[in-house]
Amino acid sequence: MLIKREHSFWQKFYLVEFFLGLGITLKNWFFGKNITYQYPEQRRQYSPRYRGQHYIKSVNGVENCTACMLCPTVCPADCIHIEAGEKENKEKYPVKFDIDILRCCFCGYCEEACPKDAIKLSNIYEMADYERRVYDKDFLMIQRAKK
Protein backbone atom coordinates (compact mmCIF):
# COMPACT_ATOMS: atom_id res chain seq x y z
CA MET A 1 0.00 0.00 0.00
CA LEU A 2 1.26 3.39 -0.82
CA ILE A 3 1.22 5.78 2.10
CA LYS A 4 1.35 9.39 1.22
CA ARG A 5 3.09 11.55 3.78
CA GLU A 6 2.39 15.23 4.04
CA HIS A 7 5.63 17.28 4.07
CA SER A 8 5.91 20.16 6.50
CA PHE A 9 6.58 23.68 5.45
CA TRP A 10 10.39 23.55 5.91
CA GLN A 11 10.68 20.11 4.40
CA LYS A 12 9.39 21.48 1.19
CA PHE A 13 12.54 23.63 0.94
CA TYR A 14 14.71 20.55 0.39
CA LEU A 15 18.02 22.36 0.80
CA VAL A 16 17.30 23.19 4.46
CA GLU A 17 16.64 19.55 5.28
CA PHE A 18 19.73 18.54 3.36
CA PHE A 19 21.99 20.73 5.48
CA LEU A 20 20.38 19.53 8.68
CA GLY A 21 21.16 15.92 7.67
CA LEU A 22 24.71 16.82 6.70
CA GLY A 23 25.07 18.41 10.11
CA ILE A 24 24.26 15.12 11.84
CA THR A 25 26.78 13.26 9.70
CA LEU A 26 29.50 15.79 10.38
CA LYS A 27 28.76 15.73 14.11
CA ASN A 28 29.32 11.97 14.18
CA TRP A 29 32.33 12.29 12.00
CA PHE A 30 34.16 14.70 14.28
CA PHE A 31 32.76 14.01 17.74
CA GLY A 32 31.17 10.51 17.55
CA LYS A 33 32.56 7.37 19.24
CA ASN A 34 34.77 5.23 17.00
CA ILE A 35 33.12 1.84 16.60
CA THR A 36 35.72 0.14 14.41
CA TYR A 37 37.90 -2.46 16.17
CA GLN A 38 41.57 -2.36 15.27
CA TYR A 39 41.67 -6.12 14.72
CA PRO A 40 43.90 -8.04 15.41
CA GLU A 41 45.42 -5.64 17.98
CA GLN A 42 42.00 -4.97 19.45
CA ARG A 43 39.53 -7.78 19.97
CA ARG A 44 35.90 -7.80 20.76
CA GLN A 45 34.77 -9.53 23.94
CA TYR A 46 32.12 -12.08 23.08
CA SER A 47 29.69 -13.54 25.55
CA PRO A 48 31.04 -16.60 27.39
CA ARG A 49 28.27 -18.60 25.73
CA TYR A 50 29.57 -17.81 22.27
CA ARG A 51 29.70 -20.94 20.09
CA GLY A 52 33.03 -21.14 18.33
CA GLN A 53 35.71 -23.74 17.63
CA HIS A 54 35.07 -27.16 19.21
CA TYR A 55 37.18 -29.05 21.68
CA ILE A 56 36.80 -32.21 23.74
CA LYS A 57 37.16 -31.61 27.42
CA SER A 58 39.69 -33.86 29.09
CA VAL A 59 40.52 -34.62 32.68
CA ASN A 60 44.11 -35.65 33.43
CA GLY A 61 44.71 -36.09 29.72
CA VAL A 62 41.85 -38.57 29.29
CA GLU A 63 39.00 -37.41 27.09
CA ASN A 64 35.62 -37.15 28.78
CA CYS A 65 33.98 -38.60 25.67
CA THR A 66 32.76 -42.19 25.80
CA ALA A 67 31.76 -42.40 22.15
CA CYS A 68 28.07 -42.61 23.01
CA MET A 69 27.23 -41.21 19.56
CA LEU A 70 24.64 -38.78 20.85
CA CYS A 71 26.36 -35.80 19.26
CA PRO A 72 26.49 -37.29 15.75
CA THR A 73 22.87 -38.32 16.27
CA VAL A 74 21.70 -34.84 17.11
CA CYS A 75 23.99 -32.96 14.71
CA PRO A 76 21.80 -31.39 12.01
CA ALA A 77 24.76 -30.97 9.65
CA ASP A 78 25.87 -34.60 10.03
CA CYS A 79 29.47 -33.50 10.44
CA ILE A 80 30.67 -35.54 13.44
CA HIS A 81 32.19 -38.94 12.71
CA ILE A 82 33.18 -41.19 15.58
CA GLU A 83 34.60 -44.69 15.77
CA ALA A 84 34.28 -46.36 19.14
CA GLY A 85 36.81 -48.71 20.68
CA GLU A 86 37.91 -50.28 23.90
CA LYS A 87 41.16 -49.83 25.80
CA GLU A 88 42.62 -51.15 28.97
CA ASN A 89 41.55 -48.49 31.43
CA LYS A 90 38.51 -47.18 29.61
CA GLU A 91 35.65 -49.37 28.51
CA LYS A 92 34.54 -47.26 25.57
CA TYR A 93 36.37 -44.34 24.04
CA PRO A 94 36.52 -42.63 20.66
CA VAL A 95 39.32 -44.13 18.57
CA LYS A 96 38.55 -41.59 15.91
CA PHE A 97 36.68 -38.35 16.43
CA ASP A 98 36.39 -36.15 13.36
CA ILE A 99 34.45 -32.96 12.90
CA ASP A 100 34.06 -31.82 9.33
CA ILE A 101 34.09 -28.19 10.39
CA LEU A 102 33.08 -26.69 7.06
CA ARG A 103 29.73 -28.43 7.34
CA CYS A 104 29.18 -27.33 10.93
CA CYS A 105 26.56 -24.65 11.48
CA PHE A 106 27.65 -23.92 15.07
CA CYS A 107 24.26 -24.69 16.48
CA GLY A 108 25.77 -26.09 19.66
CA TYR A 109 23.39 -29.03 19.77
CA CYS A 110 26.33 -31.40 20.19
CA GLU A 111 27.40 -29.64 23.37
CA GLU A 112 23.86 -29.71 24.65
CA ALA A 113 23.33 -33.42 23.89
CA CYS A 114 26.56 -34.65 25.42
CA PRO A 115 25.91 -36.59 28.64
CA LYS A 116 29.59 -36.57 29.53
CA ASP A 117 30.37 -32.85 29.33
CA ALA A 118 32.89 -33.75 26.64
CA ILE A 119 32.28 -31.86 23.45
CA LYS A 120 32.43 -28.11 23.91
CA LEU A 121 32.30 -25.04 21.75
CA SER A 122 34.95 -22.53 22.77
CA ASN A 123 35.09 -18.76 22.29
CA ILE A 124 37.55 -19.03 19.42
CA TYR A 125 36.08 -17.67 16.23
CA GLU A 126 39.21 -17.43 14.08
CA MET A 127 38.90 -20.57 12.00
CA ALA A 128 39.88 -19.38 8.57
CA ASP A 129 42.30 -21.77 6.92
CA TYR A 130 44.13 -22.39 3.68
CA GLU A 131 42.70 -25.86 3.24
CA ARG A 132 39.53 -27.78 3.97
CA ARG A 133 40.08 -28.81 7.55
CA VAL A 134 38.60 -31.82 9.27
CA TYR A 135 39.26 -31.52 12.98
CA ASP A 136 40.67 -34.81 14.20
CA LYS A 137 40.84 -36.08 17.74
CA ASP A 138 44.35 -34.78 18.47
CA PHE A 139 43.31 -31.31 17.40
CA LEU A 140 40.08 -31.45 19.38
CA MET A 141 41.89 -32.58 22.50
CA ILE A 142 43.62 -29.17 22.79
CA GLN A 143 41.84 -27.52 25.70
CA ARG A 144 40.65 -24.24 24.26
CA ALA A 145 38.72 -22.86 27.18
CA LYS A 146 37.98 -23.47 30.83
CA LYS A 147 34.31 -24.15 30.37
Binding site: C68, K92, P115, K116
Partner: peptide, 8 residues
Protein backbone atom coordinates in the same frame (compact mmCIF):
# COMPACT_ATOMS: atom_id res chain seq x y z
CA UNK B 1 25.84 -46.19 31.91
CA UNK B 2 23.63 -45.99 28.83
CA UNK B 3 26.23 -43.87 26.98
CA UNK B 4 28.57 -46.86 26.81
CA UNK B 5 25.94 -49.61 26.87
CA UNK B 6 25.25 -51.39 23.60
CA UNK B 7 21.68 -52.12 24.64
CA UNK B 8 20.76 -48.44 24.77
Amino acid sequence: DCPICDQA
